[in-house]
Design a protein around this nucleic acid. Structure first.
Lengths: 212, 212
DNA sequence: CAGAATTGTGAACAGTGTTCACTGAATTAT
DNA sequence: ATAATTCAGTGAACACTGTTCACAATTCTG
């Protein structure tokens, strides 16, 4: 230790860690650049040596949230591959969302203003999507419309599934994300709260879905 | 005119209108109390004669968003009652969400920090939910688990449907909201973008769903 | 008409993100 | 080895934010 670039990396990591702590416990709106600097033992303007702006710092946190979720999902499905992989992935998604609600909402909640996804974030998002897309049953549900199939054929090829399979996956993931958003937003209070049973019910519906 | 209470109502309405304009065009994070005061031609501290805080002002906007959506849905289904009412409601939901994205995210996106739903908001939320719940097919999808059915029986009675029907509605609404959240968040870019066809596909799946 | 109530004022406070001239030490070039 | 350059970190400033408070002015009430 002792080199300048090492020092730079150190305080950068301290800034990131402080920012993660704040977001994880209080959410992104509570993220103050000055507070982060304070926690890292540095003056506010020093943060600009490492990040272009407060939003750029937040963008980094979004990236970490994506990769954290992707790794969580991948290890979950890896330890129980085969049948029921979709259910395993779905349950891992919910477990992660409940344990990291602010990070989950950072990804799937209201987009942060002026945020344009950088390349690294996109690939991390694809990692998350791939876990589900590659584990969707091939011939479940009604076939996609010709227009939809045409739209999805190319991207489906990238994931190694059929257009119908991708359409199926997108529809099902929408349901999972929607249920979690509603649960985290307290929209099930008065009906399905806690939402554990409803979640199981949704998974059962999904595994029974299809034309036959 | 000329009375004090009328004047109070006037500036209050001006403040609300200004706030609505900002949120509608730039989203809630761009809502500045000082800016709202400026637009209403009043000094910042005067806002506190009408609203407890900036968050209280935002809460009012959430309420307006709820009632606006509820009215939109109700008129949509009223003008085409009968068969296909669910599809009509769903399409009205999407149309409203796309035309009022910030308001939609105000309701279903990341919850604003420190927000506790007041009574008026809850009843408006119920209005929205009721449009869908009362139009769900009774015997579609797998039956709910005993635990889930027990949980949902009482609230289902309030809506005049069975517990299974409510479980069905909650699952389907989750899918609709999830698809819209993902669409508005740009998560379909690269796959189902624009998402019109995927939306239709989801609605078709929903109308075909069920055990028979 | 006198007194109470309350809408709006203007100044102040603590906080925010961001910019910029600067310092001092580590790196590189001579 | 010495001089030049790079650059992480500093501290002061700017324009902004939400919020509070003593005060003025006007309307309502007894």
């Amino acid at each position: 230790m002792g080199t300048r670039s090492e020092a730079k990396e150190n305080t950068r990591q301290q800034l990131l860690q402080a920012a993660k702590d704040v977001v994880s416990s209080q959410g992104p709106t509570a993220l103050s650049l000055r507070d982060v600097a304070r926690r890292a033992g540095v003056v506010p303007s020093a943060v600009y040596r490492h990040f272009e702006s407060r939003d750029a710092l937040l963008t980094q946190l979004i990236l970490y949230a994506y990769t954290g979720l992707a790794e969580h999902l991948e290890t979950a499905v890896a330890s129980s591959e085969g049948h029921g992989a979709w259910r395993t992935a779905a349950n891992a998604l919910r477990a992660w969302a409940l344990a990291n609600r602010h990070e989950f909402l950072l990804i799937y909640g209201t987009p942060v203003p002026g945020y344009r996804a950088p390349e690294a974030t996109i690939s991390a998002a694809v990692r998350v999507a791939a876990v589900f897309i590659s584990r969707t049953p091939q011939e479940a549900g009604p076939p996609a419309d010709p227009t939809l199939r045409k739209q999805l054929t190319a991207p489906a090829a990238d994931f190694g599934v059929s257009a119908d399979g991708l359409a199926h996956a997108l529809a099902e993931v929408s349901q999972l994300v929607g249920a979690l958003i509603l649960e985290l937003g307290g929209h099930f209070v008065g009906t399905a709260d806690p939402a554990d049973q409803l979640w199981d019910h949704i998974l059962t519906r999904q595994s029974l879905g299809g034309t036959g």
